[in-house]
């Protein structure tokens, strides 16, 4: 015989049942809330005063702030500043409307991403909309040893960007514009990549080598604005092309047909 659960509990009507849960479970619940709702639980009682600071999964969505950029920036910056310094961030998701404003600096976004990177982020989602924005800002180097899943949306990649993500397994590029050979450089900085998803993206490059990738999905992409000449695929097990919506040029055409036949 084995006793799995041993804690004794008193039970009465109208008692505070939710606080009977251990802190770790409460933090799991808070992680599912919008960060602002989670932070507002600090007013509930002394035990809840600091619980929000340990939440490991953060999804900041500017739309919840009705497009008020300053409020949103202040909120995210304060949240990260007052958060428990020793707890890791497992997931960091950001939805940000980039304003059409010459004074706007993407350094603020960069600071948040660096915070996540310093706190061992595993899943990173950067979803920018509004105005195209250069992901890496003035700093062109991004190195993160823990990142496993990266989802980029509405971002411009430049050739000078230097990304080194040794543990990255899944990369999604949605509505991404990659100038020069940046896409090739990005892929060579991710030696463990298994899944690559590209949708609604434009890649200017002369060749893409997919290296270790096992699953590739291309949907509605323009590859090779400067005429792609070589598409090198190794170890590929699974290719998914949706219909005939892959727009490609020259030599790519052969590959596209192969994708559509599913016979690659």
């Amino acid at each position: 015989m084995e006793v799995i659960i041993n804690k004794k509990k008193t039970r009465s009507e109208n008692s505070d049942r939710i606080s009977n849960l251990p802190d770790s479970l409460l933090i799991d619940i808070l992680a599912l809330l919008d960060p602002r709702d989670a932070a507002q639980t600090c007013i509930l009682s002394k035990r809840w005063y600091n619980l929000w600071a340990f939440v490991p999964s953060l999804s900041f969505d500017m739309e919840k702030f009705k497009g008020k950029a300053d409020n949103f920036n202040n909120f995210v910056s304060s949240f990260l500043r007052l958060r428990d310094k020793a707890s890791d961030v497992h997931k960091f998701a950001l939805r940000y409307a980039v304003p059409l404003d010459t004074k706007f600096s993407d350094l603020v976004i960069w600071a948040w991403i660096m915070y996540a990177s310093e706190h061992k982020v595993k899943n990173l989602v950067v979803h920018l909309f509004g105005w195209p924005c250069h992901f890496l800002s003035n700093k062109s180097r991004f190195h993160c040893d823990t990142l496993e899943n990266l989802h980029l949306c509405g971002i411009v990649l430049m050739e000078a960007d230097d990304l080194c993500l040794p543990k990255l397994k899944t990369l999604s590029l949605i509505d991404v514009t990659a100038h020069g050979e940046s896409i090739q450089k990005l892929l060579s900085g991710c030696p463990a990549l298994i899944t690559l998803i590209m949708c609604y993206s434009t890649m200017y490059t002369s060749s893409i080598s997919f290296g270790s990738i096992k699953s590739l999905t291309i949907e509605c992409c323009t590859l090779g604005g400067s005429l792609i000449s070589r598409l090198l695929v190794l170890n590929l097990e699974f290719v998914e092309g949706k219909g005939a919506r892959v727009i490609t040029f020259n030599n790519m055409f052969r590959v596209t047909k192969a994708i559509n036949r599913g016979a690659w």
Binding site: R17, I18, S45, W48
Partner: peptide
């Protein structure tokens, strides 16, 4: 708990 005020949350979950 989503989108509720602190008072409401306290009331629902009876947090003292």
């Amino acid at each position: 708990l989503k989108n509720r005020s602190a008072e409401e949350v306290g009331e629902i979950s009876k947090i003292e």
